[in-house]
């Protein structure tokens, strides 16, 4: 097994970049997570028109997108760490890391699409 891991992958290839990304997104997410909670609080039990009114505000929309992007980048690294720790074997390792990236991209794109659709109304 030791010989087969000669090709750099995972932590050997991108550890420093991932470390920095996890920290910068963490810092960004301190105010952004509080913003998200404030938004969810303001819209808890809100009807459709109220929700559209809030989410249609350009500043709110911008902050929502910023939150999503930061969160998705942050959780890609975090789940990557979990996979490095628990998913062994080359095939499942690569499969899990790929699924992780696809999940984060999908959630990110779906959320940004929704936020922009509400903002611009296409």
């Amino acid at each position: 097994m030791a010989a087969s891991s000669s090709t750099p992958r995972g932590p050997m290839k991108s550890a420093t970049r991932d470390f920095r990304r996890q920290r910068t997104t963490a810092l960004a997410l301190i105010p952004l997570a509080l913003f998200l909670i404030a938004l969810l609080l303001a819209l808890s039990g809100a009807d459709y028109e109220t929700a559209r009114h809030y989410l249609g505000n350009p500043i709110v929309s911008f902050l929502v997108i910023l939150t999503i992007v930061s969160a998705v980048l942050h959780m890609r690294v975090g789940m990557g760490e979990v996979i490095e720790d628990y998913v062994h074997g080359r095939f499942f390792h690569v499969l899990a890391l790929t699924a992780n990236i696809l999940f984060c991209v999908a959630v990110g794109l779906a959320s940004i699409y929704a936020a922009l659709k509400i903002l611009i109304g296409f």
Binding site: V64, I68, A110, A114, A115
Partner: peptide
Amino acid sequence: TLLLAAWLLSAAL
């Protein structure tokens, strides 16, 4: 985050 995405999509759709 799936819930967050679902919430935003529901408001968009």
